[in-house]
Simulated scan of single mutants.
Amino acid sequence: MDDLLAWLRATIEGDLTQAKAADEASPGPWVNTGQDGQGSDTDAWQIHGAPTGDTTWKYDRETEQETEVPVLSPVATTEYDDGGGVWKREAADHIVLQQPRDTIARCEAELALLDVMVSIVDQLDEIAYGEGQGAGDPDHPGEPLYGPSTYLVKRFAKGYRHRPGFNPEWVSD
């Protein structure tokens, strides 16, 4: 159980760090701003973040007028330096669903839940074996107590089963 908990915590903390870096690089909210529409080489879907504070001029083909518009922070645009855009709309929409601020909030909540689950495991061990007796099943030394909190940790960990380093034996029943 200790290996699972350490791996799970490290994985969630890694996601949190990455989301904070993404939010700093391209603050949200992220939006799918559509295709560039200038030809087959630039039909990628573009994702932008919050306004940068700068403005630019945009030509509207329908009204034939130029309008001053805010410059949005690039996430994945048709500019090569910004990642070149996203070639499938479904993929672009999914990227937008992964807002850094939402990932940050989710990771913080998951780490708090993990702390509660670990605390419950520790409390159950103390009840079952007495304070200072250590965790585990006395019939199987080195094995954790398999109570409700262990069940919750395993189910929680299954949500990360496709991540590098995951060991399926951690969640086997």
Results as ranks from 00 to 15, higher is better:
147 G>Y: 05
107 C>T: 07
171 V>L: 06
28 G>H: 05
9 R>A: 06
24 E>N: 04
123 Q>I: 14
71 V>I: 06
82 D>W: 05
36 D>A: 09
25 A>F: 12
98 Q>Y: 04
13 E>W: 03
139 D>I: 03
172 S>C: 01
96 V>T: 05
58 K>H: 05
23 D>C: 00
128 A>H: 09
68 E>L: 00
161 R>Y: 00
148 P>W: 12
34 G>C: 08
80 Y>T: 11
15 D>V: 01
35 Q>C: 03
124 L>F: 08
51 P>M: 02
30 W>D: 10
4 L>E: 07
12 I>W: 06
171 V>D: 06
8 L>Y: 03
66 E>V: 10
173 D>M: 04
129 Y>E: 00
24 E>P: 00
31 V>W: 01
138 P>V: 13
159 G>Q: 09
130 G>Q: 02
80 Y>P: 00
49 G>L: 01
79 E>L: 12
55 T>M: 01
65 Q>E: 14
4 L>W: 09
94 H>F: 10
122 D>K: 14
105 A>F: 11
148 P>R: 10
105 A>I: 13
173 D>F: 09
97 L>Q: 15
80 Y>G: 00
78 T>Q: 03
111 L>Y: 05
48 H>F: 03
172 S>W: 08
151 Y>F: 10
146 Y>E: 15
155 R>G: 14
170 W>R: 02
20 K>N: 15
131 E>G: 01
30 W>A: 11
111 L>N: 03
105 A>E: 15
127 I>L: 14
87 W>V: 04
88 K>F: 13
91 A>V: 15
35 Q>L: 06
132 G>I: 11
56 T>S: 04
172 S>P: 00
80 Y>N: 01
77 T>K: 01
49 G>C: 00
42 T>V: 11
70 P>M: 01
73 S>R: 03
165 G>Q: 02
126 E>G: 04
92 A>K: 09
133 Q>M: 11
62 E>Q: 07
132 G>E: 09
96 V>Y: 05
23 D>R: 10
48 H>A: 13
115 D>H: 08
9 R>E: 12
88 K>C: 04
159 G>I: 08
117 M>I: 13
75 V>N: 12
18 Q>Y: 04
63 T>Y: 05
93 D>N: 14
163 R>M: 06
105 A>M: 11
154 K>G: 10
72 L>V: 06
133 Q>S: 15
22 A>C: 01
16 L>I: 12
60 D>P: 07
2 D>E: 15
167 N>I: 02
89 R>K: 15
53 G>E: 02
71 V>Q: 00
3 D>Q: 13
5 L>S: 08
10 A>F: 02
107 C>S: 12
52 T>G: 02
58 K>M: 07
100 P>L: 08
140 H>A: 12
134 G>V: 14
125 D>S: 11
40 S>K: 11
18 Q>M: 05
